[in-house]
Design a protein around this nucleic acid. Structure first.
Length: 486
RNA sequence: GGCCCCAUCGUCUAACGGUUAGGACGCCAGGUUUUCAUCCUGGUAAUCGGAGUUCGAUCCUCCGUGGGGUCACCA
């Protein structure tokens, strides 16, 4: 049997980072088993439908380095993969259920349903449920309503007081009594299917073998089980994943703490590989101490028996940042530069021309590489490589305690003016000899020089910086700094 | 509220009846260093509570407590 997994996004808004995690796991399971992963668009909610959302979702999945074997854009033999293009199918199956008495027409209006719900709540009933009123309609009444063009839905006829048990690969057997399940609407009055009908019909028709999704779906799984039974179809395996929560809290991810949508993380300058690596461990681990994983390695080691049996997993943004910094550090300067330019280009980030330059850019990046945790930090960390800094006079005097900062800078200027071989090794050696001769303490001399040239207290190594900036600019900046102190 | 699920350092987790309860992030200290960062070394810190079962419970059972999910013509 070929393993077939799927992810079924709804085009109702931006794709969430947690959805990427679920895609990742579905990809891993299918690839691990030599099977197929498919994407299906569940656009059955016309009210929440967002124009363009489908494309953005497909794009961002691709941006994360994930792909699908069947689905929109790539096709496949089980299409169409967009539910709004499969409407006649759902109607056909809904009517099949009516014929089998597993479903029935319901002509109740939304208003009357609301009233019912309200009165049930007022009576303090443990849960609100449809009262099956339309189940008792005679054939004649149904026919008349239908021919009158009265709006209707089709409901699942849930049997009373029956324990439905299904096996979850993570949680084990779960039993839910049908008394806690409402007569779910299968086909809406607009002719669109509800999720429950569509997912069962499509998963069956598309030969899905493993349904892997967030564990918030556990309570509705019995509805699906009932549908599979009614149709006489074989159940897929169920795998419910822990949901994501904000670290330190008990609630789901919130914009208050940072990005939540998949694209936002990319936009902030997290690398797709780092994000994926981080996501892998949100609900799974290999049981070893290895934790840097490529997608390929993940697929290789993935095993559903190692999915965490827990209901919530905290999204630790600090750890994400650490992993991202790690991935950035692993890149060669040239590769980092390519990644950096692609990022800036994709998100229309305005860059200093020097950063874009194929010769200069990688050099600058190599200097800040081990200091940067996100691509978005690069620009703020590198202005003095290209433009003369604004130097604060108080700061400039702060490190020179024993010697006069102005003297230090003047002497550096005089000394550097005559240096011919302007490379960092040479500068390093000569500068150390120089301050020794002058009797300056390294810290006060070099910090004063650093601030004079960069305006900043924290920078890449001083002589790397001077080499990059060049002799001429270095001397000019020292001159400017001396003027500030005058 | 009904139903379902979950519970190990601050966080993510390892352990599948017997370990000094391990690792990573964070934090702290030290080393490297002219700064920041990287890197290296070390440290801090956990089995929710109570009953059982067992020679022995993080692990099995029950109760409690806490947390989460779900109860739509949304998915």
């Amino acid at each position: 049997m070929t393993v077939r997994t799927r992810m079924a996004p709804s085009p109702t808004g931006e794709y969430h980072i947690g959805h990427i995690r679920t895609v990742l796991y579905n990809v891993a399971l299918s690839k691990k088993m030599g099977g197929k992963f498919l994407l299906r668009i569940e656009d059955t909610d016309r009210h929440r439908y967002v124009e363009g959302a489908t494309d953005r979702i497909l794009d961002v999945i691709g941006d994360y380095g994930l792909s699908w074997d069947e689905g929109p854009r790539v096709g496949g033999e089980f299409g169409p993969y967009i539910q709004s293009e499969r409407l006649s199918l759902y109607e056909k199956y809904a009517k099949e259920l009516i014929a089998k008495k597993n479903a029935y027409y319901c002509f109740c209006s939304e208003e009357s349903l609301n009233e019912l719900r309200n009165s049930q709540q007022a009576k303090g009933m443990p849960s609100t449920k449809y009262d099956k009123k339309c189940l008792n309609l005679s054939e004649e009444e149904i026919k008349k309503n239908l021919s009158d063009g009265k709006p209707y839905v089709i409901r699942l006829n849930v049997p009373a007081n029956r324990d439905v048990t299904f096996h979850d690969e993570v949680f084990g057997d779960i039993t839910i009594n049908t008394d806690s399940i409402d007569d779910q609407i299968l086909l809406k009055s607009d002719g669109y299917p509800s999720y429950h009908l569509a997912v069962v019909v499509d998963d069956h028709l598309m030969n899905i073998t493993h349904v892997m999704r967030g564990n918030d779906w556990i309570p509705s799984t019995p509805k699906h089980v009932l549908l599979y039974e009614a149709f006489g179809w074989e159940q897929p395996k169920y795998i419910h994943l822990p949901n994501l929560k904000e670290k330190g809290g008990t609630k789901k991810l919130s914009k208050r703490f940072g990005p939540v949508s998949a694209i936002q993380f990319l936009e902030e300058g997290y690398l797709a590989e780092a994000l994926l690596n981080f996501l892998m461990f949100l609900g799974w681990n290999p049981g070893t101490e290895k934790e840097i994983y490529s997608l390929e390695e993940f697929i290789n080691d993935f095993d559903i028996s190692r999915i965490h049996k827990t209901d919530l997993v905290a999204f630790d943004r600090e750890k994400l940042l650490w992993i991202n910094g790690y991935y950035i550090r692993q890149l060669s300067p040239e590769d980092l530069h390519t990644v950096f330019l692609n990022w800036a280009n994709k998100f229309s980030i305005v860059l200093n021309p020097g950063l874009i330059d194929r010769n200069i850019g990688p050099k600058v990046l190599s200097l800040v590489q081990e200091r940067v945790k996100k691509l978005s930090e690069v620009s703020a960390m590198t202005p003095y490589f290209f433009d003369n800094p604004k130097v604060d006079s108080t700061l400039l005097s702060e490190f020179a305690k024993e010697a006069n900062p102005k003297d230090i800078l003047t002497n550096f200027w005089l000394f550097y003016k005559n240096i011919v071989n302007w490379d960092k090794e040479n500068l390093d050696t000569l500068s150390h000899d120089f301050i020794k001769k002058k009797g300056y303490k390294p810290k006060e001399a070099f910090m004063t020089l650093r601030i004079a040239v960069t305006g900043a207290v924290a920078t890449p190594p001083l002589f790397d910086t001077l080499e990059f900036i060049g002799k001429k600019t270095t001397l000019l900046r020292i001159e400017s700094a001396i003027k500030i102190l005058s």
